[in-house]
Design a protein around this nucleic acid. Structure first.
Lengths: 244, 244
DNA sequence: CGAGTCATTGATCTGTCTCAATATTAGTGG
DNA sequence: CCACTAATATTGAGACAGATCAATGACTCG
C-alpha cells in the first residue's frame, strides 16, 4: 500500500480560481483576497494513493482541495480502519490537526489531486485582521461537526439501505453544487472504502447496490452509478440533516 | 417528555471559577480575563430534563457548563434519536449552531445544571483582539471533530463490548481530570441513552454490563459503577485515539 | 404504599458478517 | 494488441452478534 509519491509545488491565484466561493468567504474585497493569495500561494500535487498527511505527523497547515478526491481515515493498532470522510474539490482538509498540533488521521488521495496549502499560522494571523475569515473558519469547523453528527446518526441507527441511500444522496448533492450531473457519478472509492465509511462490509455494500438496481432505483456498473429514481432514494433515507 | 423549566439568571465571575483552566485559555492575563467576565457574565440554570437549546432554534451563544450533565442528540422525523455526546462541567456546548445560525441538535440536562452564556457575537469580537481566545476556540472545535472521529470508529467497527469499554474509560478519564475518582462513577444517563450513543439497544448495554460484572471487571448496580480492573477494560478497548 | 420509570434476563428472530467461488476490470509486459 | 496478473466486484450459503419481544425485578417519588 506504500506509494512513491512526488510533490510538486506551483503558485496559486485565488482571484481567478473558480472554487473561490467554496473555500474563501464570499464577502471579501479584492484587496483582501490579494492578501490571502500572498500567503496561501503554494500548491501541492498528490498522486493517486499518496498521503497528504498522516496520523501523528506535525500539523502545520490546512489544505484546500483544488482538484481530486480524498478520503480521511483513522486506524487502530490491530489494523482496523475507519474512513471518517470523503473530500472533494473546494473542501478543506486537516482540521483534525489543530487541537493537538499533530494530525489525527490519514488523508489519502483517491485520484491524482492538487491542494492549496494554507499555513495555519497565517490563517491565525489573518483571522485577527479579517473578521470574515475568522467567521468563515468557524463555520467550516462547525459544519464539519454537524456533518459528523449526521454520520453518527447514520452509523448508530440506520439500516444498510438507508446508509447507502444517504451516502449517494450526499455525494450527488455535493457534485451538483460543483456543476456536475446530479444523476450520474463515478465513484472514486472502492466498495470496501464505502463500507468502512458506512459501518458495513464491502459485501453488504455490493448487495445493497444490487438490490437498488433490482428495484430500478439506480443503474450500477462497478464504479459508475446512474441514479434513476432519486425520490425513491430520498424515501429510503428520509432526508433532512445530512447536509454538508 | 415536555418539562416545565425555569431559567434563572445569575452573575458569573471567571476570575475565581475553578473551571477556568478548562473553559478559558490558560495564558490570558488577569486583565484579559476581566474583559471576558464583562461579557460572559450571565448564567442559566436548567433543571433536570430541561432543554438548553433544541434543533431549529436560533443560535446566539455558546455555553460553558458550570455544573451538571448534558446530552446532545439529533432526531429523525420517524422518532429515531441518536445521542451525539455527553457533556460535563467545563465543557462547551452549542458549536453545532455556528454554521447555519440555528441549532442542529437538542441539548438536554440530565441533572440540574448551570451554564455560563457566551454570546457568539462577543466571542467573535473578542477573538479579534485576543489571539489566545481565537486559538482556544479553534482547538475546542478541532477537539470536537477528533472526538467525533473516534466515535465514528467506535460505531463503525467495534463490538458491543469494545464500545462499552471505550465509553467507560472515556467517562472516568474526564471525571478524573475534574478531580473525581477514576474507579467509581454514577451514570447520569439511562441504559437507553448509553445505547443510543453507542449504536446499541438498551438490552445489549445491560447485557454487556452484566458480562463485565461476571468477569469481575466492574461492579454495577443500576447507575452506580465501580471499575475493578481498568487494565482489563483497556485491553478490551485497545485504547488510543478516543481522547477528549 | 402504589404507580411509573428504569434495569435485568431469557427466548427467539433477523440483518449483516464471514467464507468462498466466480466474474469483471485495470494494469503490465511481451 | 493480446495474454497474464492483481485488484476489485458480485453473489450464494451458512453463521452469529445483536435486535426484538416479553416477563420480572429494582428503584424513585409523590
Amino acid at each position: 500500500m506504500q506509494l512513491n509519491m512526488t510533490f510538486k509545488s506551483t503558485i496559486a491565484s485565488c482571484s481567478n480560481c473558480n472554487l473561490r466561493e467554496l473555500c474563501l468567504p464570499t464577502s471579501l474585497s479584492s484587496a483582501d483576497i490579494q492578501r490571502l493569495e500572498a500567503v496561501f500561494s503554494s500548491r501541492l500535487r498528490i498522486p493517486q494513493g499518496g498521503l497528504l498527511f498522516s496520523s501523528g505527523t506535525p500539523f502545520t497547515a490546512l489544505y484546500n482541495i483544488r482538484s481530486g478526491f480524498f478520503k480521511t481515515c483513522v486506524s487502530l493498532e490491530d489494523g482496523r480502519e475507519q474512513v471518517t470522510g470523503f473530500q472533494m474539490a473546494g473542501e478543506i482538509i486537516g482540521l483534525d490537526g489543530i487541537v493537538n498540533e499533530y494530525h489525527n488521521c490519514n488523508a489519502v488521495a483517491l485520484e491524482d489531486a492538487e491542494v492549496c496549502v494554507m499555513p495555519y499560522a497565517e490563517i491565525e494571523r489573518l483571522s485577527q485582521e479579517l473578521p470574515e475569515l475568522q467567521r468563515h473558519m468557524h463555520k467550516i469547523m462547525s459544519g464539519e461537526i454537524v456533518r459528523e453528527n449526521a454520520v453518527m446518526m447514520l452509523l448508530g441507527s440506520m439500516s444498510a439501505e438507508e446508509r447507502l441511500a444517504a451516502f449517494l444522496l450526499n455525494l450527488v448533492k455535493r457534485l451538483r453544487a460543483r456543476g456536475f450531473s446530479s444523476s450520474e457519478l463515478l465513484l472514486r472509492m472502492t466498495r470496501e472504502e464505502i463500507g468502512s465509511y458506512l459501518g458495513l462490509t464491502l459485501n453488504t455494500v455490493s448487495r445493497v447496490f444490487s438490490k437498488f438496481r433490482e428495484k430500478g432505483i439506480v443503474n450500477v456498473k462497478q464504479r459508475y452509478v446512474q441514479i434513476l429514481k432519486i425520490d425513491e432514494l430520498e424515501l429510503i433515507y428520509d432526508s433532512q440533516s445530512y447536509n454538508e
